[in-house]
Nucleic acid binder design. Structure first.
Lengths: 229, 229
DNA sequence: CGGTGTTTTGACGTCGGTCAATATGTGTGG
DNA sequence: CCACACATATTGACCGACGTCAAAACACCG
């Protein structure tokens, strides 16, 4: 497995693309490759991070516990996304918990390397800014969606999102398989509500299921459902 | 009225504090002082911004329209906060609309000045990053709140927030006066629901009202209500 | 004073959360 | 390969929070 950042494809997708050859070498030398098994956590809410995690492989859910102890999945992180950036830059503890949804390999890049580069390479800083600006916009969108769309609509959007970002297998099922509970925690509802909606979608010929796997049958129909018929 | 950024107190609160004397002079020379009357908009959703707005005085609501045309207030901006930063940095159109809640004075700082400084002064970039990191954390919190707290709890939090950030007058009423509609658009509910909750709070001796003004009578009680009694 | 906009209250329906029972997997050790 | 234990999925019944519609009470103007 390639372990030099200079040759890592994943880097294309994140702010590390702004680094010079020399800077990349430094990152490469200081980073640590880790493997994380499905269900294991990379870090917990409130933890102090000594660096960031760059995802090479697999998917992680970033979640937050509410006062009532219910988990809410704020975002998913896969190939190329850097986790913990916010925390390291603001020099605060994380406000999120990261758990592997399937087996992962990630690169841990120590804090000082990041901060160092940030201080000396304005391009890197700007690149990070761009990414964060994008995340912020997304977050605002989610806020409005949460308050103004029905659970049904949000769940529909989640399926389309998963198809778009993780694709489907040969049989037309979503590549990334989540439990009903996880679906529920993404759209912010109870798993039963989520289950009921899935079976309703099935009845209408919009979805199909096979075990825990879910496939989109009628994407256009699903999309119409979301926009309000 | 002081019009030189070098002497502007407001600057303490935002990322411009990272600027050198010379850089501040440049900003000062390129900026334009504007006054905005209550109800007027600074910019509209989807507009392309040629610069950022630094609030000297007054309060603006930053909102977003949902698909159904309902307004959702994402955040409030007062003294010292810089609006439009995200959009200018990401070089995208705004995703928010800014409307003055009361009479305002703002400084418009042209895009090229910002970008320029960003490229040459890493400290500034990092300072901006810190602010954005903070906003992002806030946004995640709001997302979880929206999905897991009741309207009653969110509204209660809104009152505490307004008291904390804008204070109250001599009679114990919140300094920043919003319409019921605006309250509703902050917590993401219908104005009627919002009104009903306010009168319920009044009955319980937690709030008092006088016209559109709202005062917190029993802050501790309100806080208990939010955390779930 | 009538006119326009906001606040308040009432009635009603429904979306979605909770609890409980059942079914269906899924993994473990024998 | 089976049987048992445990996790996850599914379904049903119930009910409370909240959105919507409509009307009445105020308020704020010219």
């Amino acid at each position: 497995m390639e372990t030099r950042c200079e040759n890592c494809i994943v880097r294309q997708y994140n702010s590390l693309r702004a680094l010079s050859k020399d800077e990349l070498k430094e990152v490469s030398n200081s980073k640590i490759l880790k493997t994380v098994k499905k269900g294991e956590s990379l870090f917990e809410e409130g933890e102090k991070l000594d660096g960031v995690y760059c995802v090479r492989n697999g998917v992680s859910k970033l979640s937050k516990l509410s006062a009532t102890g219910k988990e809410h999945i704020v975002k998913l992180a896969s190939n190329g996304v850097i986790m913990g950036q916010r925390s390291v830059i603001a020099d605060e503890t994380t406000h999120l918990r990261a758990v592997a949804i399937n087996d992962m390999t990630v690169c841990f890049i120590p804090k000082h390397t990041i901060i160092n580069t940030l201080n000396t390479n304005p391009n890197f800083a700007i690149e990070v800014l761009r990414h964060m600006a994008h995340d912020l916009k997304e977050a605002d969108n989610v806020i409005v969606n949460m308050s103004q769309k029905t659970v049904k609509q949000r769940l529909g959007e989640a399926f389309l999102y998963l198809k778009k970002n993780y694709g489907e297998d040969n049989d037309g099922y979503l590549t990334l398989t989540l439990s009903r509970d996880e679906y529920a925690n993404i759209v912010g509802t109870a798993s039963e509500s989520c289950i009921r909606i899935i079976s309703e979608f099935k009845k209408k010929g919009l979805l199909k299921t096979s075990g825990k796997k879910i496939g989109i049958v009628n994407e256009k129909g699903l999309r119409n459902m979301i926009t309000g018929f």
